[in-house]
Write a protein that binds this DNA or RNA. Sequence first.
DNA 1: TAATAACCGAGACGGTACGTCGCGTCTTAGG
DNA 2: CCTAAGACGCGACGTACCGTCTCGGTTATTA
Lengths: 203, 203, 203, 203
Amino acid sequence: MSARGRGRPRSETARAAIIAAASRLVGEHGYGGVSMEAIAREAGVSKQTLYRWWPTKAAIVLEGLNDAAAAIAPASSTGRFEADLRRFLRRTVAGAGGRNAKLLAALMAAAQLDDGFGEAFRAEFLARRREVLRELLVLGRRRGELDETADAEALTELVFASLWYRVLVRNAPLDGDFSERLADTIMALAGSARGRHDHGASR
Amino acid sequence: MSARGRGRPRSETARAAIIAAASRLVGEHGYGGVSMEAIAREAGVSKQTLYRWWPTKAAIVLEGLNDAAAAIAPASSTGRFEADLRRFLRRTVAGAGGRNAKLLAALMAAAQLDDGFGEAFRAEFLARRREVLRELLVLGRRRGELDETADAEALTELVFASLWYRVLVRNAPLDGDFSERLADTIMALAGSARGRHDHGASR
Amino acid sequence: MSARGRGRPRSETARAAIIAAASRLVGEHGYGGVSMEAIAREAGVSKQTLYRWWPTKAAIVLEGLNDAAAAIAPASSTGRFEADLRRFLRRTVAGAGGRNAKLLAALMAAAQLDDGFGEAFRAEFLARRREVLRELLVLGRRRGELDETADAEALTELVFASLWYRVLVRNAPLDGDFSERLADTIMALAGSARGRHDHGASR
Amino acid sequence: MSARGRGRPRSETARAAIIAAASRLVGEHGYGGVSMEAIAREAGVSKQTLYRWWPTKAAIVLEGLNDAAAAIAPASSTGRFEADLRRFLRRTVAGAGGRNAKLLAALMAAAQLDDGFGEAFRAEFLARRREVLRELLVLGRRRGELDETADAEALTELVFASLWYRVLVRNAPLDGDFSERLADTIMALAGSARGRHDHGASR
DNA sequence: TAATAACCGAGACGGTACGTCGCGTCTTAGG
DNA sequence: CCTAAGACGCGACGTACCGTCTCGGTTATTA
């Protein structure tokens, strides 16, 4: 592969400055208040450099998001499924709240308006997050704490659907109460016979 | 009320032309492919008239959407709660599918990017739709077909969350199978004892 | 003449308010910073009323100007031509200076850009002012203080041309020195032999 | 001077197209009938490019005017002052007449309404024209054909004042008669003793 | 060690749309 | 018939970003 490395290599300095500028600007003015023009200005970089490496501003912001997400450690298991589930939901709900909510909402919005970014967002962000929970549920089923017939895919969808609805519609807060209720619902729908008593949507 | 009737009255002709033009343009070029400029041009109307009455193109499209939704007959009751529920969900899911899906997605996106429109969208569209289902559920509880403890608010949220997730994430289709499963989930979580047999999320 | 007085008569209140508002606005924001819209707003009058009575904003401003000019007393004669001339020039130059200069400049500008107003301005303002000086010169000639061959028209043009040049070009001030020099020039060009000694452009 | 040559250089093609379009449009529809919008459209240029280089349409037209004026050969000297003067005045008056008169009037109007342009117009157009005549007069004085005490500045002002008055007020034509009379006046006011006979304002 | 190539900043370019302003006309209700 | 109010179609304003396109300069590798 001698084709590698001919010419000046890509500047990591520029890349980092761009990601940083984009993240900061989104934090300050919201996703809609950011433009390629502004990112370039703020990062001290030419627009050409932006367009050479990213097709849209959404791609830049997404790269920053994934960089950040990579720093988060994967949930460690306690051995007890329900405890793991509740902890996972607690963390996930908390991570989607606060000032992250606006960013997530803006990214979901961008995914609707730009097909290219939408595909990337669904495949590289949403699907990955779903997968973590799905595996947790499959493990729970294998351990006998969930019904043998429990549909992990459907339950996962239900959880993230509820989460995103609150992020996008803001009809109710993303708090501990919410995460506990999500867990209750899961257990009510799919908890194995020996664990199902009086939990439920009545809570 | 002396301020009424002063000055030239608002032109209904113009309003109708604008709504029609906006709807047609969205149908042809997608929400993102529509501009205030184009709506004005197409409707044979000045931009000033647009801005006089609507703050955003999203508001125009939303008004068109509500006009259309008003034409849809309210769910007629059969007397049997579960049948009513299943019919409501079937219709709602069908109405959110097809080419409407993209439009709804675009409106939800706009709601994230523009606070003013977001508020209007949540209050005048989302909340209204939720209310219809909520009342249906309350009625079902009153009839004894749902648990006395059933949380109508939470169940409503669960339904629309699931619906919007499919609209926005497109991980699975908005078909009859989906609407039936939503109904199953509701009944599994809140169906009264005498009606609860083997329905459920296991499906 | 029964056609007189059919219907509501023109409102003098409105007329006065309009002229006053226009004058004030010109004083505050300059002629260019005034619009029909603003005059109507400021005078508490509908735009319709403006357009019914005046074709352009220049016409309104001009009417105000003539109203004001009518209040200025005509120059009284002392019997000595040169003294009368010098006084006239002193007053005229002074009246064109200060904050009036900007207004005059703006009106002359408007006269260039709007043919209708231009005609009115030339006939009802410029020509009238010229006439006063022309008559003064004719009188001076009749008294023998000016050459029999003196061309009153040309001298008048020379005076007002110089005056307007300073108003429009602002290459030098509209002060007493200027008015005296104008008088000197007149006398140098057309003073009768017995009065012509060492006045002149050398001053 | 390291800032030179950075970035894409200004397009001379665009500049030329703009000046040409502006000149043509002024010729066709008059100064008032031209807009930045139209110039951009006609020149096949974006509005941004106009505003990047010129603050006002008046500035564009002025640049065109100066370009054109630069093409006019400077007054060649014959050695005889009075002949030079008469030729200069003849040419200048002719150049200010005809269809140029309306353009000049419009520019002078614009100079009154826009301070920025006004300054440019006075410094880069009016002052330059005055300077040519002033130098001619100084030369005439040095040659002894004008009084030693002749005030070149004042005489110059008198000439251009008269010229502009006819341009703006249109009380009389800009013809050969006018230019000759201007020359007569100059000679009457400042011609040296040996040349002063019976010329004068009596004409 | 020189040439080559891909990079980088700066910034001008043709476009499209923005949201605002003022124009002159019109359509009401009311004096 | 006049007036105030105010909506209307129209057209231009000046600005913001878009994505593309030269420029002059700056590193690296490769010949």
